[in-house]
Design a protein around this nucleic acid. Structure first.
Lengths: 175, 175
DNA sequence: AAAATACGTCAGTCTTGTTGACATTCCAAG
DNA sequence: CTTGGAATGTCAACAAGACTGACGTATTTT
């Protein structure tokens, strides 16, 4: 029922005269939703394969990734980026520290803070995971071409919650 | 170390003379990875909020979504699309059936198969979840514009595993 | 001195995924 | 007709990864 144009939207405010916003039909939006679902599976598939068998999982990958990108970041900082509870992060971090992949340094100005870095071994695993994930991303980007990549990033950025967009843009500035 | 152009790639086979494939640098690829991570969080946030408090979760949402898109689909079919074990799907499906959101119909030609449909109540919940998710997707699409949306879909499709791409394209044909 | 912050930890729960084993029902081939 | 295999369902056990709540400790801020 009513598969046509439920749209619930205002009219195209600008000069969208002719065929007008075909990409905003419910059908197009559903395609986008399914594309996200299937693509995210591919996105995580390679690192997941590498990690299975080790006693690590996706949560460890995420921690390694962001510690790599922002060395000497604090636990609180990581908490905000990952969007999990400190208990959940702590479990992951504890094993990574025990296994010698991550080091925790007491803050010099504020001694309550712990600053996190990757050890050599941590960098090695991060690189292995990152290589696999970047390889897939690179193939996808190459197949799609530069304009598609620009559009891809534009849409994803628009899809984020405000907090996450801030975190995302902050990371880009920090490099 | 080597943050510049590890590239490991062949040369641009075509006429990429001047600045050549800037969008394939490791830095650009990392941005893409982080964009996927943060965007996926936004993508699932609204349905998750709706479902919290009910005794349902993301797995129930996914089942409802695909049963809605392909009514009378079989359990095996759904299994392949969702990529989980039958035990895992069965737990979800059982509660949905018990609660009267999904109906299971014995196949007419092959009576081993169960064909799944949404009840009125199931359609209502699916619509509620779908509306929220489409609203976010619509906003993102509208902000980004049609060309960006096309690029978005192109990249996501290229990022899928082959199996998932087939499933994705098959769903589009079925409507 | 008191309050707030940053961190860690213990304990318990929930969702969602996994294996393995087993029963049932049914189709189709021998 | 019998039997093998496919599709389904179910029981049990388990693990990862998220959650809440409570508590403790060191440190900084007010």
């Amino acid at each position: 029922m009513g598969r046509k144009k439920t749209m619930a939207e205002g009219h195209p405010p600008s000069a969208a005269s002719g065929q007008a916003l075909l990409y905003l039909t419910d059908e197009q939006l559903r395609q986008g939703i399914e594309a996200m679902f299937f693509a995210y599976r591919g996105f995580t598939a390679d690192p997941d394969r590498i990690l299975e068998g080790m006693s690590y999982g996706r949560a460890h990958h995420r921690a390694l990734h962001f510690i790599h990108c922002a060395p000497m970041t604090t636990v609180n900082n990581l908490l905000a980026i990952l969007g999990v509870t400190k208990q959940s992060l702590n479990r992951v971090l504890r094993t990574l520290i025990e296994d010698g992949l991550v080091e925790s340094h007491v803050g010099r100005s504020d001694k309550r803070e712990r600053h996190l870095t990757l050890t050599e071994a941590g960098q090695a695993l991060e690189r292995q995971l990152s290589d696999a994930q970047r390889a897939r991303m690179r193939d996808a980007f190459r197949k799609a071409g530069p304009e598609a990549v620009a559009g891809f990033k534009t849409v994803l950025e628009a899809m984020m919650d405000d907090d996450m967009r801030r975190a995302y843009l902050a990371l880009r500035e920090g490099r």
